[in-house]
Simulated scan of single mutants.
Amino acid sequence: MSNRSWFYAANGQQQGPYPEAQLRDLITRGAVGADTLVWTEGMSGWQRAGEIPGLVPGGSGPPAYAQPGGPPPVGAGSYAGGALSIDVSIWELLWRSIVFVIGMVLVIPSPWVATWYYRWVFSRLYVPGRPNLAFTGQPLDIWYVFIAIGVLTYVGSADLYYLQYLSIPIQAVLAWMVIRWIAANLSSNGQQLPIAFNGSALGYIGWQVLLYVSFITIVGWAWVVTAWMRWICRNIDGTRREVIFTASGLEVLWRTLVFVIASFFIIPIPWVLGWYARWYASQFALAERGTMANA
């Protein structure tokens, strides 16, 4: 492998070829990361650097199968589908999440803080076949939605039960609008993606209400969340592959309980937050349309 020449993708452009020694130097300096797409002769397609055994410290993955010729076009997926993943450090995830919560509580900065947070999250998200994923939404696109969400954070402190119940469908509609906004503002390699979330507002309200009711069963909420995520995935259109949610209700239940219980002890929060975020992201995957996902 030491005599190979490597290519890597940056800003939607193919860079290289570079001798392996130079590529490793780029990795050391941070110019090439574990999520950067790379290719060398003998590989069937572009892969993340972290998936190449021995290339990135701590990285591992299946060996590439030989295929003659030059590198495929940047952005061409090396396989039809696969699980999503997120590459975040526990401390960065923690402080950014804290800033996000504070921004929502303060109401006025919520549109800017939310946009800033979503841009960071999607820049750290790896989607098979969609290199350099980015969120392109602007703070003032739906500023009124975030202001309303911020205001509703104070409803729970009100000693008026009817007001709290009334806020449930309102919160659902606001969350539905945020999801539609996010889906419509995703890009890959600088090109806008034709993605849309077409689930109905009424359907989203129904799931929100069902979630609240399911807490009566103590544990039933986990299966509601699982079914809800699958409904959301089924209503994502504009992609040549379908998005699926692979977690089972039992997995959602025990992992969420571990996260909540550990958070009561304060100190473990950064670690369990990173653990839970990485697991949750990995439960979303892309598959050829028509593939049945059983969980």
Results as ranks from 00 to 15, higher is better:
Thr115Glu: 07
Gly58Ser: 00
Trp223Leu: 04
Pro19Glu: 08
Ile261Cys: 05
Pro17Arg: 05
Tyr162Glu: 14
Trp143Ala: 15
Gly61His: 02
Trp181His: 13
Ile168Leu: 14
Trp181Asn: 05
Ile179Trp: 07
Ser214Thr: 02
Arg230Tyr: 05
Trp176Asn: 10
Ala10Asn: 10
Ile170Leu: 15
Gly16Thr: 09
Ile168Cys: 07
Ala295Asn: 14
Leu166Ala: 15
Phe100Pro: 01
Val178Pro: 01
Tyr162Leu: 15
Pro109Val: 02
Gly203Thr: 07
Asn3Thr: 11
Val88Ile: 11
Asn189Pro: 05
Ile149Leu: 15
Val272Asp: 02
Ala66Thr: 12
Gly150Pro: 03
Glu251Ile: 03
Thr136Arg: 14
Val252Phe: 08
Gly150Lys: 11
Tyr118Pro: 03
Pro111Ser: 07
Phe245Asn: 04
Phe215Glu: 00
Trp223Cys: 00
Gly290Val: 01
Ser2His: 14
Pro194Lys: 06
Gly54Met: 04
Leu93Met: 07
Ile102Ala: 13
Arg48Phe: 04
Tyr161Lys: 15
Ile182Tyr: 03
Phe135Gln: 06
Ile266Thr: 06
Leu55Arg: 05
Trp254Ile: 02
Phe259Pro: 00
Pro71Phe: 05
Met1Gln: 09
Arg180Phe: 09
Pro268Trp: 05
Trp275Pro: 02
Ile98Pro: 02
Ile232Thr: 11
Trp116Cys: 06
Ser60His: 05
Asn294Tyr: 11
Arg24Gln: 08
Ser2Leu: 14
Ser85Phe: 04
Glu92Leu: 12
Val225Ser: 05
Glu20Trp: 00
Tyr8Lys: 01
Ile27Tyr: 04
Asp159Lys: 15
Ala134Cys: 09
Trp228Gln: 11
Pro270Met: 09
Trp181Ala: 08
Arg241Gln: 12
Gly206Lys: 01
Tyr154Leu: 13
Arg240Asp: 15
Tyr144Thr: 15
Tyr18Gly: 03
Ser188Phe: 04
Tyr126Pro: 07
Glu41His: 14
Ser200Asp: 09
Ile147Tyr: 14
Pro111Gln: 02
Ala10Tyr: 09
Ala184Phe: 00
Thr256Trp: 02
Phe284Thr: 01
Gly81Cys: 00
Leu250Glu: 00
Ser89Glu: 10
Phe7Asp: 04
Ala172Asp: 09
